[in-house]
């Protein structure tokens, strides 16, 4: 695993960007899979794409607040385990009914085998 950076998109103004938080070992997540990460009373979903890049979004589906980490990752899509709402986890974009609100995404980097996310 090389230290690739994940989602470049950020919804935060520069000044709000805070510390990077260690989420897990890079090897903890299989390729084309997802893992839940809780931090500071919030919950996130960390993804490893089929081409071995890492991404992070809010952990709960925007439809009914279900943990997306129980869902299925196929290519660049995470599908909610409850009602099959689909999102592109790289951009956070909702991909049709029943979800219509995008997920917030967070910058991710891999450093020395650890996945770090900037949760702002």
């Amino acid at each position: 695993m090389t230290g690739l950076t994940g989602a470049e998109q950020s919804n935060f103004p520069e000044e709000q960007m805070s510390d990077w938080v260690e989420a897990c070992e890079a090897a903890d997540i299989d390729e084309e899979d997802v893992m839940r990460f809780d931090h500071g009373g919030r919950t996130f979903a960390i993804y490893r794409s089929p081409d071995d890049e890492y991404f992070a979004t809010d952990g709960l589906c925007s439809h009914e607040k279900v943990h997306l980490a129980d869902g299925l990752v196929m290519d660049d899509i995470i599908e909610c385990p409850k009602h099959n709402g689909r999102f592109n986890y790289k951009t956070g974009a909702a991909r049709g009914a029943p979800v219509c609100v995008n997920l917030r995404t967070y910058p991710v980097k891999v450093d020395a085998g650890k996945v770090l996310i900037q949760i702002g």
Binding site: V66, H67, D70, G71, L72, E79, P81, K82, N84
Partner: peptide, 11 residues
């Protein structure tokens, strides 16, 4: 419990 079977059912 919860969404334990969701992923495998989807597959």
């Amino acid at each position: 419990p919860g969404n334990a079977v969701a992923r495998d059912i989807r597959l």
